[in-house]
């Protein structure tokens, strides 16, 4: 279990998170929701260790391999889609093909649409094959069909992997998440809604 205990974080004297506590269950998919500016991305950076909390502790991530999908795609502009997807690790499957990008694997990011670039970034996270997946608005810019494919792919990762994803979309959270964390209240709704396992 990943536990955030009494976490506080301020930027230039402005409190973003104040004595925030919550838990993320292992082997489940948790959606993190909340209004803009509430500190979702700060929480994301804290979990990744990119920033340190002013107060409080985070446990359950020590020595764990974390696959990350940032809010922006953050692709290497001079690497092909395939090279980008494999830049962090080889992974067990051909995720580019599973995400419908087999024909585009030799294309540079500049030649791909926004949705395709998102899928390449997604494939990179999947190829890294982490024990924990941290995803910041993973389905942003995807068309409904691709979104469905991607959701099924992340669903298939559980219960071996733990998936935490930030979203603004209630439907996405309801469809995919086992638990939902509302950041403004810092409460976890257990088993928010059952997920239809049929792809």
């Amino acid at each position: 279990m990943i536990t955030l205990n009494q976490i506080s974080k301020s930027y230039d004297g402005k409190k973003v998170l104040h004595r925030f506590s919550c838990t993320f269950a292992e082997g489940k998919i948790t959606a993190v929701m909340g209004p803009s500016g509430i500190g979702k991305t700060t929480l994301f950076s804290l979990l990744l260790g990119l920033i340190q909390p002013d107060e409080g502790t985070i446990s359950g991530l020590e020595g764990k391999k974390i696959s990350v999908l940032f809010q922006e795609d953050r692709l290497f502009p001079f690497l092909t889609a395939k090279e980008n997807a494999l830049v962090a690790g080889e992974g067990p499957k051909d995720y580019l093909a599973l995400l419908g990008l087999k024909d585009e694997e030799n294309a540079l990011p500049s030649a791909l649409s926004g949705g395709m670039q998102r899928r390449v970034a997604m494939a990179r996270a999947l190829h890294y094959d982490g024990e924990i997946f941290l995803l910041d608005e993973p389905f942003k810019g995807l068309d409904p069909k691709t979104k469905e494919q991607a959701m099924a792919l992340f669903r298939s990762l559980t219960p071996e992997k733990t998936v935490i994803f930030i979203t603004h979309d209630k439907e996405e959270a309801k469809l995919l998440a086992d638990d939902i964390v509302y950041l403004n209240e810092a409460v976890v709704l257990k088993d928010a809604l059952p997920f239809d396992h049929t792809p």
């Binding site: 990119l50 990350v68 940032f70 953050r74 290497f76 001079f78 690497l79 830049v87 962090a88 890294y128």
Partner: peptide, 24 residues
């Protein structure tokens, strides 16, 4: 800096970070 964060979270070796981020 965003690509440097990618290198950090994916634990790129120094040579890879130099080749993919600093050299370009």
């Amino acid at each position: 800096p965003k690509l440097l964060e990618v290198a950090k979270v994916y634990h790129f070796p120094v040579r890879k970070t130099l080749r993919l981020i600093y050299y370009p």
